[in-house]
Amino acid sequence: MNIFRLTGDLSHLAAIIILLLKIWKSRSCAGISGKSQILFALVFTTRYLDLFTSFISLYNTCMKLIYIGCAYATVYLIYAKFRATYDGNHDSFRVEFLVVPVGGLSVLINHDFSPLEILWTFSIYLESVAILPQLFMISKTGEAETITTHYLFCLGLYRALYLFNWIWRFYFEGFFDMIAIVAGVVQTVLYCDFFYLYVTKVLKGKKLSLPA
């Protein structure tokens, strides 16, 4: 555990909680892609199956349970409790274009051809692109609420911090996991355009809106 890893995890946790609180307090999931949230729930479910097979630490187990619990709570709020506020017309990204290729790739390129390992690989690949329905939705409506941009910033920052964590681990532990690193770079790159808008607009007190 190093500082980048810990702050990355906390940033991830902050993102998840910001989103839950935003929906809960405003009693609305307007502007939130339910499809991205389903993909994240799928990511955590397929990645954390090792909860049943191995114990790493109390921290590890607790965080996994919190992430999974929050992911399903978010999906529940969007598709059940506040379904009337869900903007399905703008959430039109075709998720099968992500899930099918990612599924194929995880069968082809993995560390070990075993069910758990393939599901872990699937979750890593899927996480790297799971935000695309959300970004697509923002590009379609041309704007995002400020609180939604804070959520996205924390979520992007988390994977960027993990990149520094992997650099750290490579130098000090000689450890690297090529699958996680490549997917992590892809994931972080997808946020770059958003990071730019966040810094140039949201941090200067303006609402995030894209030119028509």
């Binding site: 995890d9 991830h12 090792d50 191995s54 790493i56 992430y67 964590n165 996991d177 996680a180």
Partner: peptide
Amino acid sequence: KEETDGKDEL
């Protein structure tokens, strides 16, 4: 589990 098996990460 060893820290180096990677799955200690979230």
